[in-house]
């Protein structure tokens, strides 16, 4: 048993940043680090992983791997684990990553720590910190099976470039079309040019205080000036001002950007759970007693309809 594997998250050759975060983290564990990339025509990506310390890059190419599908990916990875016997495998905690990891874990009858925010792995012993109750508590768990499996939350592991050999390895293809049981009929990319909530450096969110689409427009204006992701509290989602995919909080997304700006959000406990781990928090709220002030580094008591335009014009200067 040797080596740490990082499963690359990519779509059409565009690599998610969390992949590099996982490689940087794996490097700290002292074991050989390999990037595992599935796709079609993905060998050209190998030098990208070497920049973040990948000693090896396992390239799995073929028609059935062109887009993520659970059946073929799990069959292939399970065969590779059997052949190369890695110590630990990290996946991104994304729509595809958690699907992949969960089905693989069950196939191996193994444990899996999901949505990990801190890791400590050595000699096949993996201890992970996970946020539970959407961040209201933290659990330290040990995965007692090998390889140690975990899905890693985006934005929590520090990026660190280091040169790796990036030697390309082409494993035997063990999966076939018979392993594919999901047919992806369509993928409609979200129209927004804004970054995704879980990966953004800055998140600007609007809540009940936005009062309607006009208020949301102001929040969007501020978000776009900062290249930020747009989010919302449950109030603005339930009112239909924003889609559910933009909800931050216990039944939405947990975010941890460098800066979170809450506009017209009072800070219900479910919302605080989803954003309290942000590095910097600012808020604009008319109610001086709102709980959001208790977690804000910079709080403005005021009307977002008046304050946001000033902030935008000041930022422009």
């Amino acid at each position: 048993m040797a080596g740490t594997w990082v499963i690359v998250e990519q779509k059409g050759g565009s690599i998610r940043k969390v992949t590099y975060e996982m490689l940087s983290e794996a490097k700290k564990w002292g074991d050989e680090v390999s990037a595992i990339v599935f796709g079609q025509g993905v060998e050209a990506l190998a030098p990208e992983f070497a920049k973040f310390g990948a000693d090896k890059v396992y390239v799995v190419e073929g028609d059935i791997f062109a887009n993520y599908n659970t059946g073929a990916y799990v069959a292939q990875l399970a065969a590779m684990i059997n052949e190369y016997q890695p110590n630990a495998i990290m996946f991104a905690h994304t729509f595809n990553g958690r699907d992949f990891a969960s089905r693989l874990a069950q196939k191996l009858e193994a444990g899996l720590a999901t949505d990990v925010i801190k890791a400590s792995v050595s000699a096949g012993k993996g201890v992970f910190t996970r946020s539970i109750y959407a961040g209201k508590a933290l659990a330290e768990v040990e995965v007692t099976t090998v390889p140690v499996l975990a899905t890693i939350r985006a934005g929590v592991m520090e990026l660190a470039e280091s040169a790796g050999a990036g030697a390309v390895v082409k494993p035997a293809i063990a999966a076939s079309a018979a392993d594919v049981y999901q047919v992806v009929k369509d993928f409609i990319p979200s129209v927004s040019a804004r970054p995704e909530l879980t990966e953004a450096d800055v998140v600007v969110s609007g809540g009940r205080g936005c009062k309607g689409p006009e208020g949301i427009k102001l929040v969007e204006q501020l978000a776009d000036m900062l290249g930020a992701a747009l989010g919302g509290s449950r109030a603005s989602i339930d009112s239909g001002w924003l889609g559910h995919e933009l909800q931050v909080g216990q039944t939405g997304k947990v975010v941890n950007p460098n800066l979170y700006i809450a506009c017209g959000i009072s800070g219900a406990i479910q919302h605080l759970a989803g954003m309290s781990s942000s590095k910097f928090i600012a808020c604009i709220n008319t109610d001086t007693e709102a709980p959001i002030f208790n977690v804000s580094d910079f709080g403005v008591v005021g009307d977002l309809f008046k304050v946001i335009p000033v902030v935008c014009s000041e930022l422009k200067k």
Partner: peptide
């Protein structure tokens, strides 16, 4: 297959400037 080692509350965030 997974053992819970410990459970803790996250460090509470302090209020800053208002």
């Amino acid at each position: 297959k997974v053992a819970i080692v410990s459970v803790a509350l996250p460090p509470s965030k302090q209020a800053g400037i208002k």
